[in-house]
Every structure is written in C-alpha cells, then in structure tokens.
Write a protein that binds this DNA or RNA. Structure first.
Lengths: 194, 194
DNA sequence: CAAGCAAACTAACAAGTGTTAGTTTTAAGA
DNA sequence: TCTTAAAACTAACACTTGTTAGTTTGCTTG
C-alpha cells in the first residue's frame, strides 16, 4: 500500500520548501503551492495530509540530519579544532543540497505544532554538543579562553545563515567554501604581523 | 493635526514588533495584536492606517538607522579594523534597544509592498559600503588577503543574528558584548602558539 | 476491451482575514 | 456642568484560508 515511489509527494515538498523560503510558511497558501505545481489545491491532498505535515517533513528531516552528522563528528578522536572544521563542512554540505529547506528550519520552526517540542529538543542538544567541543578545545588549549557563548553564537550564526548566501555564490564549490569559511571562523580576518 | 504625542501608535508598533518576532508578520492577525493591546481589532485603526504600515515603520526606520550609522563610521579616518569594530558596536547598540524590530528587518522584509524596493536599495548599499571597508583593509594590509565575500558574509551573518541572542544573554552588557564579539570576529578563536 | 486505481478535477464548507461604517464611552478644558 | 474630540466599541463586509466530498480522467494490467 505504501510501497510506491513517492516522487510526486517529494516534488510537492520540494516546491513547498522553495515557496516557504520566498515568503515564509504562513504566507504561502495551498493554492499558491498548487499553482506552482500546475494543479488545483484540492489535488495536493491526494499526496499529502496537511500543510502542517509538509512543514514537519521539511524541518524534522533536516534537524535529524544535523543531529546524526554531529554525533558522527563527536565519535572521532580528532582535535577539537578539526571537529569544528568538520562541523563547518557538515553545514555547508547539508545546506548546499537543500537551501530551501534550510530557510524553513531557520525561520518557520515556530509553526510546527505536534513536533515543536521534539524539534526544540534536537536543537538544544545540538547546541549543547557544539558548546562541549568549544569547551574541550579551551581545556586542551587549542582555543582561546574567551567567552564560550560569544564564540558559539558567532560561529553558529554564520553557519545557520549559509542558506542565504550559498545560492548567490554558485562559483564557490562546497569544498572551497568549507575550507575558506573554516579559515575565517577559526583564525579571523586580522593580518598578523610576522 | 499631527502634533500629538503619538504614544499610543508607538505602543501598537512596539507590540506588533514583539508579535512579529514570535510568529512572523503573516501569522500575526490584527485580532492577535488587538488582544495583546487589550482592545478590539477595529480600534487599532484609530491609530494606524493598515497592518502593512506597521511593518513599514518597523523596518524602514531601522534600515535607515543602519544606513546613517555606517555613513558616520565611513567619515572617520580610523583604520579599517577600527571601522569594523565600530560596525560591530553599531549592530550591538541598535539591536540592544530594538530586538523585536530586528526580527522583522531580517525575516519579514519581503512582505513590504510599496517600500520593498527602497528597502532593498538601502540593504544593497549597506553591503557595498561594508565590502569597501574590507577591501580597503586588505589593500592597507590590515586584513588578510582572502575571499572578500566569505569574510563579509561571515561577519554580517553574525551581526544580523544578534537579535536572537541578545535577549538570552542579558548578563552581557552592550559594551562587553561588542568588545568580545569584535575580538572573535577579527582575531578568530584559534589559540596561537607564541 | 474491461477493470481498477492513482491522481487529477469541481464544488463547497466553516472559519478566519483586514478593514470600514457608524455608535458609544471616556476624560479633559471651557 | 456642558462641549468636544480622542479612542474605544459593535456589526458587518468581501475575500481568503485549509480542507473535504464526490466525480471524472487517464494510464496500466489482465
């Protein structure tokens, strides 16, 4: 019964993500989405259960991708600075192949209903693990002993905003971008006199 | 005719900004806003012309504040690194006294109607001036000769996300925050071995 | 060709939207 | 106390919202 290819549903979700990025979840109507899909609003319901479900699928799958990605990084026994570089790569990679979805993750999570609490849990755990890496880095004297929250906020804000910039800089491939971004985030922009 | 104190209108705009931050412009109804103000929706129209006008006033005044702030910084003959520190201060200060409005500026600008083009112009000019400072900094050998767009993006993303973090870190006053943030953005988090 | 079924359609719904018109309340100044 | 104007109210509007029910279309398989 549920063994079909589901490609039509996927198309709808992808198209929805694109529209959500442009106008936000609340401003996109099922009729907007249907028009973009070349069909009538009621027909969407042959493939999806509700508007809410679309949002949920977009956001939760991405949030879980980040969670498992970070767990993977945590497992390794690289230095903490190396782990940070891997986190940058994780964000660049996930964002590169789903810039639309990342907009919803960042801006429309508050419109999740049943899954809101779960999302907030994932997010909070992610930040805790991230904070841990910085903390360990300070302890091991790889990272400067400054305000952890400021460092966490600064790096994470940049990574969370990637969805806004990656589409505009298509000349930069994910490899290069990760490399250069890590450099800037870790070493700053200041020219040291040496 | 227009010489009154306008405090009621200001209250409405402030309350609207708060709600817009929580749910986004589109998801906030005039009835939500009225309830929060302790009145009926129709009564709001004794003070404002439309929902759209509220958004416009929130966003445009902030955008202009940034524009004039940056122009002021540009006028000085400080080093480019010092100018960057001033930009950080500018963002921290404006965001500190209007975190709600900053959410709209970042997330709801696309719902501006007549003023959309003007907003985009201000924003684009701001980015150009910011880019110029980095460019000059590279030329004068104050800033590393790396990808300008990556540095611009990285710093600006952090500054634009401040509205999300400042309310959660009330223990950090604007002075301290600006100082520490500048340090991290300019010098990175890497512990140099010296 | 016939049957079956996924996926489109039309029509309609109940609820909610921004906003207007017209009326009543409130409070300050004469 | 009376007047006046600001600011609240009630009622209603035309339109849009997400979603459901029931029907038709068109492909795939026997």
């Amino acid at each position: 019964m549920k063994l079909k290819n589901e490609t039509r549903k996927d198309e709808i979700i992808k198209t929805a993500a694109k529209l959500f990025k442009e106008k936000g979840y609340s401003a996109v109507t099922m009729r907007d989405l249907a028009t973009e899909m070349g069909m009538k609003a009621a027909s969407l319901y042959n493939h999806i259960n509700s508007k809410q479900q679309i949002l949920k699928e977009i956001i939760i799958s991405l949030a879980e991708e980040f969670t498992t990605g970070l767990q993977e990084i945590q497992k390794s026994n690289k230095s903490n600075i190396e782990k940070l570089r891997d986190i940058v790569k994780l964000h660049v990679n996930i964002t590169s192949h789903n810039t639309y979805g990342m907009a919803s993750l960042n801006n429309d999570w508050m419109h999740l209903e049943e899954k809101l609490e779960y999302y907030l849990q994932l997010r909070s755990n992610y930040e805790d693990e991230f904070r841990n890496i910085i903390q360990q880095g300070i302890k091991k004297e790889e990272i400067i002993n400054e305000n952890i929250e400021v460092m966490l906020f600064s790096i994470l804000s940049t990574l969370r905003s990637l969805y806004l910039w990656i589409p505009k800089k298509e000349d930069l491939n994910p490899e290069e971008l990760s490399q250069q971004l890590s450099e800037v985030l870790i070493n700053g922009i200041n020219k040291k006199i040496d």
